[in-house]
Structures are given as structure tokens and as C-alpha cells.
Design a protein around this nucleic acid. Structure first.
Lengths: 228, 228
DNA sequence: CAGTGGTCTAGACCACTCC
DNA sequence: GAGTGGTCTAGACCACTGT
């Protein structure tokens, strides 16, 4: 390989941003100039700068050129593993207990975008780590977009895992928050009523159609981490 | 531009993954074959498959080829805006009140990696949205890696914003969780003691040296959202 | 209109890693 | 050792957008 790789350009550009050799708000040389200066092809510069732009450290616009943003919006990427793997990666032994599984009318907030009197599968399950309650999974599954789920055996494999392996989604949204444990949840998670629980609400869709919507309530003390 | 762009290849590959034309666990054709089949250059296929691999939808290894993972680990990317911008983007009017600002010995968990008897600047501030408490910012700042912070006026601009504009970091970590509001925090956030608060702990470094460590305690009901 | 990034191509060589 | 992805190059044309 040549001496100058796109990583070379990447770190050199990063250096110039950090040392303020390239000032916030200022325009940086265009790709052709940088390629000539650093002694590589324009495509190599392009690859490096595109990478920095994706990370939010540069702003690129055709004709307007490339600038160092005044208020860099940093991004953090979280992996969303299946719960079992999450537990394993913490060095704990995963456990799983199916609590209930019923066909029921969709709750109001999910009814939008579903055919008239659609029934959804309601699944509630408890995930354990080293035998201790880890996370309560409360899920609605659309049997139309998750065919086979009505006859799937969810006692051995969690709905979480079954869905990952048997459906594929095109989009969705995820939200993090915190809620006080209500008495029933507290009992399941073996914590004090009112304890602060970390909450993940996630909805996945295929096209416009709902696949599943889930609330994960984590036992007190749970932390979700990432590097930036 | 030619008919077949990398996005073409990207969506075609996505289609094959979703329709299970490419089965989970199975190996897919190599780049050269796909390029020939789709009628484009290998670099174009590479760009598309690399993109899918970064999103966790493919696994690539030299010599071993490219596979569809059995348990795709999806990723969610969160933007970490400065708090003022976060409030504005919610359509609210941001407010800010500096609560305290003291030079003090570093707390134990931050003392590692600091020179012996290092003093840190402790800054506590309250962010308001439409006049209502939004988020409590409790921050430690290292005056060595954030030069100028000791004389910065943090009454008009938050430490958050000052740091974004005046320092640059090379890495750090972020963690989300939930905590019950202690009485003092409850008073500041105008909520009930014990209310579940969404918590962000963030530490940023330049090289190995600490720049700042902050805990953001959000008023009850706060949600952090992203698309996936 | 013209400058800048976005992308494609064809060929080449390299680096990793499975066999 | 050999197959596969990783990357570089030089040139070309395109697409967007500021002026």
C-alpha cells in the first residue's frame, strides 16, 4: 500500500481541527488541493473527509465546500443487542421466564396504522441475569407482519430473539427515559415500588406496518454505555 | 452517472437480506461476482457492502467472505446536542441559571489520571425550558485541559456550550441510566423527591487526560429519541 | 454559470486469514 | 498458499448549489 492512506488523511485532518489550524466556522481547502498537498488521489481525501463529516466533525456541501462546524454535534452509536447477548456480554448467566402471552386488541396508541379490529399478540417476559431480575419485556407483536409468531414457542426463546431471527424491519424508533416502578413491576423486578427504572421503548416497522412495539424496564442501577 | 450506483447495490443487497434470498448465516457472493452480475465496478459493490456491514447487516472478513449475521446487532446513533439546542429543537425557549462554581479537589472517581493534588472546577447549573426546570448540569472541569475556563464567564453561556466551543476532545464515554431524585435535586427540578430521573453521565478526554465529567439529571418525563 | 463534492471505472497491489 | 476484502490511483462525468 502507498504511504498515504485515507486513515492518514483522516488523522491529519483531525489534527488540524483539534489544533485549530482549521478554525471553527472556516472553510478548509478543497479536495483537489488537499490531495495535491498530501500526495494522494482525490478519492483518498474524499474517503477521509466523508468519514469525518459522518461523525459530525465537518460539514460538507457541494459548491460551498467543507467547513469546520461552529457547534459540532457529536454522535454516539449504541449497539442494540438482543437481551440475552447483553447479559452475556456483562459476564452474567442469562435466564428467561415467559410471564404471559395473549391475543388482545391493540392499545390505542398502536391502533393507528393497523387494520380495523386488529388483534395483537401481547407478550410479557422477565429476563434474569445470574438468577436476578434484569429486565421486564412488555411487547405487542403484529401477527400480520410477524407471521408464525402465533404458533411460535416463546417459552424457551424470548420474543426479542425470535423476532430478530424471523422478521426484518425497515425502520423504527427508539426512546430512552425513566419511570418509577409501579407495584406490579417492582414485584417482578424484585425492587422497591417507586424505584427509578431505566426504560427503553422501541417500535419497529416494515414499511409503514407495525411489527412490534416493546417496553423494556430495567432493574434499578442498570446503565447503558457507549464510547464517543 | 451510470445506472448502477452504490445505492442501487445497497438496496438490492438489503432486499436479498430481507427476502431471505440470502439466508442468515450464509455466505453471499464475493464482490467480483456481484459486480459482474449487477454490472458495475467492484469498488461500487464494495462501497455498498461496507455500508451495510457498518450498520451491522452484514459481516465481512477477508478470505472468509461476506455473511448475513444470524443475530444482526442493530445500531442506533444518537446526536448529542448542546442542551440549549436540544431545548430549542423541542420548540421551547431555553433558559439557564448558574447555581455554583467552585474550585475543589477532584472526587475520588475522577482523581485517577490527574496530577497529585489537582483541583477541578465544579460547576452546577440549571437549564430551563419555557421557564420550567429541564435539566440539572453537575460538572467537573479540568482547568489544565480546558485552559481559560477559570476566567470564563459562565453566567451567560453554559459550561456545556463553552466547552464545546473552546476545547476539543479525542474520546470519552457516555452512559444512560435512571435515578430517584434526592431531595435537593427534586427542589431544583421542581419535582417530587424520589421521582424517576433520566440520567446521562458523560466524560470526555483529550488523549488520556480528563477534560470534563458531567452528570445531567433530566426533569421527570424526559425522553431521548432516535430513529433506527 | 461555475466551483465543489459525489460517484463510477478499470486496474492494481496489499493484508489478512482460512485451509 | 490462495482467496477475499481493503485500499489506492488517475481520470472522468455528474449533481447540487452559491454567486
Amino acid at each position: 500500500m502507498n504511504n498515504v492512506t485515507w486513515q492518514t488523511v483522516h488523522s491529519e485532518a483531525l489534527r488540524r481541527i483539534r489544533t485549530r489550524e482549521w478554525l471553527p466556522g472556516a472553510r478548509i481547502p478543497d479536495e483537489a488541493d488537499l490531495a495535491a498537498e498530501l500526495g494522494c488521489a482525490r478519492a483518498t481525501v474524499n474517503r477521509a473527509l466523508r468519514d469525518l463529516a459522518e461523525a459530525g466533525l465537518l460539514e460538507r456541501r457541494r459548491k460551498a465546500g467543507t467547513r469546520v462546524p461552529l457547534n459540532p454535534v457529536r454522535k454516539a452509536t449504541f449497539e442494540i443487542p438482543i437481551i440475552r447477548q447483553d447479559i452475556e456480554s456483562r459476564g452474567l448467566t442469562p435466564g428467561y421466564r415467559l410471564l404471559s402471552r395473549d391475543l388482545a386488541p391493540a392499545p390505542e396508541d398502536l391502533a393507528r396504522g393497523l387494520a380495523g379490529e386488529a388483534q395483537l399478540l401481547s407478550v410479557r417476559a422477565l429476563h434474569l441475569a445470574d438468577g436476578i431480575p434484569f429486565c421486564l419485556e412488555e411487547r405487542w407483536i403484529n401477527p400480520v407482519t410477524a407471521p408464525g409468531v402465533l404458533v411460535a414457542d416463546l417459552t424457551g426463546i424470548s420474543a426479542n430473539e425470535w423476532l430478530v431471527q424471523n422478521t426484518s424491519f425497515t425502520g423504527g424508533d427508539i426512546a430512552f427515559g425513566a419511570l418509577n416502578a409501579d407495584p406490579a413491576t417492582a414485584r417482578l423486578l424484585d425492587c422497591a415500588p417507586g424505584a427509578a427504572l431505566f426504560i427503553i421503548d422501541r417500535t419497529t416497522r416494515t414499511g409503514e406496518a407495525l411489527i412490534t412495539s416493546v417496553r423494556l424496564s430495567y432493574a434499578p442501577g442498570h446503565r447503558m454505555q457507549a464510547m464517543i
